[in-house]
Nucleic acid binder design. Structure first.
Lengths: 218, 218
DNA sequence: CGAGTATGTTACCGATCAGTACCTAAACGT
DNA sequence: ACGTTTAGGTACTGATCGGTAACATACTCG
């Protein structure tokens, strides 16, 4: 089949006429997520990347190194989502929260039958694996960003709320692997209900000007 | 170094003078939980069980068969915990719920640095693995039992409450692998707060002890 | 005792896997 | 044109792993 489509400089996303390192990371992302880190061999990744094992080892000095790159890729993309939500809703913490829930809803509406790739990787990785620390710091960062958002949006008890929302999200993604019609299918409703019931009413969010942190309600 | 202690018929729990199948299951339980299903080989299990690979294969026809037995063991023990909570609090759904939360608290106070063994196994297992269905049905059963308990204790919206409590518990156990001082360390407080705020007041169990006001779910 | 059974021990097979050596072919800038 | 870099391909090594064969030993129970 034709891999080099008509327009050469186009940023074709699903084509395989891209630099090999990118192809390898794409293949690793797909296979690692679907089948786990340990069950997927480097040969299978190289083959899925339309290349061979030697080229893989020219770009990654070991399989563990590839795993680290895989984790870094996922983490930075998650951070980019967060930054996009921030930049698209400037200065309005409440809108950012709502946009985040919309994002969660979109995540669950897409194929997610294997849950959170980072959490799954953490299950398979030893405590000493260098990727493990990346996952831990990512998860900690996300929870902290949630808490800060709740604080900025003047919610009651932002720490508790962030804990609850974060754990519900985590629990839903681990539990979706035990069936798509379980409690995970209703997590978005739960999140929306949590946000509604925890919202502060004496502080209307009409003017979007104060992205300051001096107004810490609690 | 004496493994056969003085009292022979004693039900010594940590000794290794037990039938080999039991030793193998104990070793598998420890190693599978600590290091995962794929990274632990049958040789390591046999060695930890103070026996050898042949004896292992006389009791389990394959490693997958041992994995199934490992999952069945965990599931039946979880069911026994639930039955014990029931029998120790006869006819009182609220007491049973409180006892369950106490059990959860005990779980988190003990060593749990690797989260839920069943959830971790589900991450590592393919969808076609026979143990996967066991895990799914176990998780579904636990959530259903929680919902029935909330219903019997006359809580508002037992389905939603069971979803929330279940996902919080699941999320806490997957997240504890990213650090013991994270939101998982506060999940018991969250559960107690959820139970307190969701309790129905117009239908007291023993007396008119109106607990909470209205619809603040969390 | 003796026969049958459960267990221990060693050695091995075949497959898979991470990682490498070596060579060839294309792309590239000068 | 040229040399350099990058990528593809093949074949290999060494280790590990799941699983088995064959034999030796211990235990149990009639």
């Amino acid at each position: 089949m034709n891999t080099t489509q008509s327009n050469g400089t186009r940023k074709a996303c699903d084509l395989a006429a891209r630099p090999p390192r990118e192809r390898i990371l794409l293949a690793a992302r797909d296979l690692f997520y679907r089948h786990g880190l340990h069950t997927v061999g480097v040969d299978a990744i190289a083959e899925a990347a339309l290349t061979n094992k030697m080229t893989l080892y020219r770009h990654f000095k070991s399989k563990d190194d590839l795993i680290v790159a895989y984790i870094q890729q996922l983490a930075s993309e998650g951070d980019e989502v967060w930054e996009r939500i921030f930049s698209e809703n400037p200065g309005d913490p409440q809108k950012r929260l709502d946009a985040w829930v919309d994002f969660v809803e979109e995540v669950f509406s897409n194929k997610l039958e294997r849950g959170c790739a980072l959490a799954n990787a953490a299950v398979e990785l030893d405590s000493e694996h260098p990727a493990k620390a990346l996952i831990e710091s990512y998860k900690r960062r996300k929870r902290g960003q949630l808490e800060k958002l709740f604080k900025d949006a003047r919610y009651h008890d932002p720490r508790l709320l962030a804990d609850e929302v974060f754990l519900l999200f985590e629990g839903a993604r681990i539990n979706i692997q035990c069936g798509k019609r379980g409690p995970a299918s209703r997590v978005v409703q739960m999140l929306r209900k949590l946000l509604a019931s925890g919202r502060r009413r004496n502080r209307p969010e009409g003017n979007a000007k104060s992205e300051r942190r001096n107004d810490t309600a609690l």
